[in-house]
């Protein structure tokens, strides 16, 4: 028990330490941004520090937090829906080749229609509401999760299935004890991708449908030609995504991928 806790703590420490590399990358981006700012001036591209200050100010205003919360909630609602539906349908299709063959062309069609078109349709059907946003997210992100789940089912190690069957596992326990872990390995990267798209689509839908949230604030910043505010809102939205991703999905992924760490030689961990 203590050993398991220590192991998790050490992995958390390693992860936090690797944050320095991420920070260095961000600083590089900020340097490029600063160069752009110095070349084109504050009106076209405000300095990173200016943007951060604006973001800080927005956060302390109070209203910004509500807007962020609204957008995050909408994104998460759409994401949760698409995760549940995508995984359920994907697993079902993975186990049933006929369903998979039927669903592949449908998926191509859905993926081919740009999210913008869905927003327009959803706006006509449901008006400017949270439902419009959620539906757009659902349609835009479900195919990714679906394909991840299908991939997980079809590429699973059937030898392990036979092994479990020999030791007395029925179909249900073969799924829960053996296949689920392998499916999760494929679904989680798809979920990370879907979460990112959820935020993007949420903001886009809000902006177009004028449904408030960060998208609404961006629309206002655009109409007032306030580039600093617009960039600050973008930074805040990215921050929200980062918090959700690293607070929600990455810990689960790290827990499931612990054995991969063991395969890496000492000192080359990520």
């Amino acid at each position: 028990m203590i050993a398991a806790c220590l192991d998790r703590l050490s992995r958390l420490g390693r992860f936090l330490w690797s944050g320095w590399a991420g920070l260095a990358g961000l600083c590089l981006l900020a340097a490029l941004w600063q160069a752009g700012h110095e070349a084109y001036g504050s009106f076209i591209l405000p300095a990173p520090v200016e943007t951060l200050n604006a973001a800080w100010r927005l956060l302390h205003d109070g209203a910004a937090r509500d807007l962020l919360e609204l957008t995050t909630l909408r994104a998460l609602m759409g994401f949760a829906l698409s995760a549940v539906i995508g995984v359920a349908l994907g697993v079902a299709a993975g186990y049933s080749p006929a369903t998979l063959r039927l669903s592949r062309p449908i998926l191509t069609v859905i993926l081919g229609v740009p999210p913008i078109a869905w927003i327009v349709l959803a706006m006509i059907w449901f008006g400017a509401s949270a439902l419009t946003v959620a539906l757009t997210i659902l349609i835009a992100t479900t195919p990714v999760v679906f394909m991840g789940a299908v991939e997980g089912v079809t590429t699973r190690d059937r030898g392990l299935d036979a092994m479990a069957q020999v030791f007395g596992a029925g179909p249900l326990r073969r799924f829960t004890h053996v296949a689920a872990r392998q499916i999760a390995g494929h679904v989680l990267p798809a979920l990370v991708l879907a979460l990112g798209s959820s935020f993007k689509v949420a903001i886009m839908a809000e902006l177009l449908a004028n449904a408030g949230g960060v998208g609404g604030a961006l629309a206002r910043a655009r109409s007032m030609l306030d580039i600093t505010d617009a960039l600050a809102w973008v930074a805040l939205a990215v921050l929200a995504l980062f918090l959700v991703e690293y607070g929600l999905i990455r810990p689960v992924q790290a827990e499931l991928e612990r054995w991969r760490d063991a395969a890496r030689p000492w000192g080359v961990k990520r």
């Binding site: 007395g168 596992a169 004890h177 872990r181 054995w259």
Partner: peptide, 19 residues
């Protein structure tokens, strides 16, 4: 045919877990 995500102990104990 060992489960790569489980330790040696968990792999050996798998039939017991199933029963």
């Amino acid at each position: 045919r060992l489960m790569p995500w489980a330790t040696v102990e968990q792999n050996i104990g798998f039939p017991l877990r199933l029963s």
